[in-house]
């Protein structure tokens, strides 16, 4: 029969004695320097290929705008380049964020169920579906966008169908409209949203989802109150990965839009390559960067804390 001896006196709940903090050999000096030596190559890389060009760009944004390529540019703390650029091109900036935001909403509506289905419902089809999500990335961005041009063509089946069912006026079109640009942005950057979201959904403990179902949460409630909060790190990463390149994109507007849909990326492209107005191009680049950075910081501020017990743990 079972051993019914009394519980052993050594209680398992007694916390193990904390080992005294010890300094491993090597001496304090070496220990302090080593981590910095390890990050040195990375930092050098960053400084060389990110930091310096950024400084160069910052300097270019402050050049005297009357300079030109042939006469040269003079650094003049010309902060006026910023308000000038903003005054002329704020509609393009606004459009960039508007289109990228709309595309983000669309991508969330498509990508959340998609990532959810692949991570939790696909079973043995999971790998195949993942490949399907990633597969378009194997072809060039340009080719993919050009493919949409064919699909959305005025003479194509889609426009024909929409015209037949009167969703589109007889002379209506999809190409060269904001719709086409937003669609292109959504399509092109969707995998960047889906993959991190998938990764964090896939790691989700399914028993927690079962617990929610057991506790009277219907599928929608389960998704909103448990799945989504737990997938938040992936969701935030996906939103950033989607939104940042989408707001700076110019290919979609160029190929699927008309001049009335051009985004700030098109203006920067033209400022550097066609108009050779480097100060303005640099100023616009920085304005875009600052706006995106502001959004990112806001988003991270807003979402931190909820998922991390370390920040608001302990007794209140």
């Amino acid at each position: 029969m079972t051993d019914r001896s009394a519980p052993s006196p050594a209680s398992h709940r007694t916390p193990a004695a904390r080992p005294a903090a010890s300094v491993p050999g090597g001496g304090p000096g070496r220990r302090r320097v080593l981590p910095y030596l390890l990050v040195l190559p990375g930092v050098a890389w960053l400084v060389l290929f990110f930091g310096l060009p950024l400084v160069q760009l910052a300097a270019a944004s402050l050049y005297d705008p009357t300079g030109s390529l042939s006469t040269g540019y003079v650094f003049a703390w010309a902060f006026g380049n910023y308000p000038d650029a903003l005054a002329t091109y704020w509609p393009h900036l606004a459009r960039s964020f508007g289109y990228a935001g709309l595309a983000l909403l669309l991508a969330l509506a498509l990508g959340c169920p998609l990532a959810y289905a692949i991570a939790l419902r696909a079973g043995r089809w999971r790998n195949l579906l993942l490949v399907c999500v990633v597969a378009p990335m194997f072809t060039s961005f340009l080719v993919r966008t050009l493919a949409w041009k064919t699909i959305l063509s005025d003479q194509g089946w889609l426009v024909g169908l929409l015209r037949d069912v009167h969703l589109l006026a007889p002379d209506g079109r999809l190409l060269a409209t904001p719709f086409a640009v937003v669609l292109g942005l959504t399509y092109n950057f969707l995998p960047l949203l889906v993959l991190p979201l998938y990764a964090s959904l896939e790691r989700l403990d399914r028993r927690v989802l079962e617990a929610a179902t057991d506790l009277y949460a219907d599928p929608l409630r389960t998704f909103l109150t448990v799945t989504l909060p737990l997938a938040k790190p992936g969701l935030v990463a996906g939103v950033l990965l989607f939104f940042i390149p989408a707001s700076g994109d110019y290919i979609n507007a160029e190929l699927l839009g008309s001049p009335n849909e051009y985004m700030v990326g098109n203006v920067i492209d033209s400022a550097f390559l066609v108009r050779l107005d480097h100060p303005q191009g640099a100023a616009l680049s920085f304005l875009l960067m600052a706006a995106v950075l502001g959004l990112v910081v806001t988003l991270l501020r807003h979402t931190r804390g909820e998922g991390s017990p370390a920040l608001d743990g302990g007794a209140r």
């Binding site: 028993r207 057991d214 737990l230």
Partner: peptide, 29 residues
């Protein structure tokens, strides 16, 4: 469906909601 049954479960590894505190875990249902 499970959420319509008047039964509740204590799961093997507890399956507590890691993003909720004790109060909100208990208040969930």
């Amino acid at each position: 469906r499970p959420y319509r049954r008047p039964v509740n479960t204590v799961f093997q590894s507890y399956a507590l909601f890691p993003h909720l505190d004790v109060f909100d875990n208990v208040a969930f249902g």
